[in-house]
Amino acid sequence: MAIDVFSRCIAGFHLSLEAPSATSVGLCLTLVASDKVPWLQQRGIEAHWPIVGKPRRLGVDNASEFHSVAFERGCAQHGITIEWRPPGQPHYGGIVERVIGTLMQLVHALPGTTFSNPSERGEYDSDKTACLTLEELERWLAVAITKYYHLRPHEGIDNEIPLHRYEQGLQALAVANKTIPIPRDPRAFLIDFLPVVRRTLQRDGITIDHITYYSNALRPWIQLRNQPSPLLIRRDPRDLSRVFVLDAENNAYLEVPYRVLSRSAITLWEHKLARKCLREQRRTAVDESSLFAAIDEMREIECKAETLTRTARRNRTRRQIAKSEGAPTIAEATSPTIDIGPVLPFDIESW
Rank of each mutant, 00 (worst) to 15 (best):
N216D: 15
N216T: 12
A217F: 04
A217N: 05
L218H: 02
L218N: 06
L218G: 06
L218F: 00
R219P: 03
R219S: 07
R219F: 03
R219Q: 05
I222F: 00
I222A: 00
Q223K: 06
Q223S: 01
R225L: 00
R225E: 00
R225F: 03
S229W: 07
S229Y: 11
P230G: 05
L231R: 02
L231M: 09
I233A: 02
R234T: 06
R235F: 04
D236A: 07
R238K: 06
R238C: 13
D239R: 10
L240Q: 15
L240I: 14
R242S: 01
V243Y: 05
V245L: 12
V245C: 12
L246P: 06
L246A: 03
E249Q: 06
E249C: 01
N251H: 12
A252V: 11
E255L: 03
E255D: 11
V256Y: 10
V256P: 09
V256M: 11
P257T: 02
Y258F: 07
V260I: 06
L261D: 01
L261I: 00
I266Q: 02
I266H: 04
I266R: 02
L268G: 02
W269Q: 12
E270P: 11
L273G: 05
L273T: 14
L273E: 11
L278T: 15
L278C: 15
L278H: 15
R282N: 14
T284E: 12
A285Y: 05
V286W: 10
V286Q: 12
D287L: 13
D287R: 13
E288F: 10
S290Q: 09
S290A: 15
L291K: 09
F292D: 10
F292T: 07
A294G: 07
A294H: 14
I295A: 10
E297H: 11
E297W: 03
M298S: 13
R299V: 09
R299Q: 14
E300Y: 03
E300M: 08
C303W: 09
K304L: 12
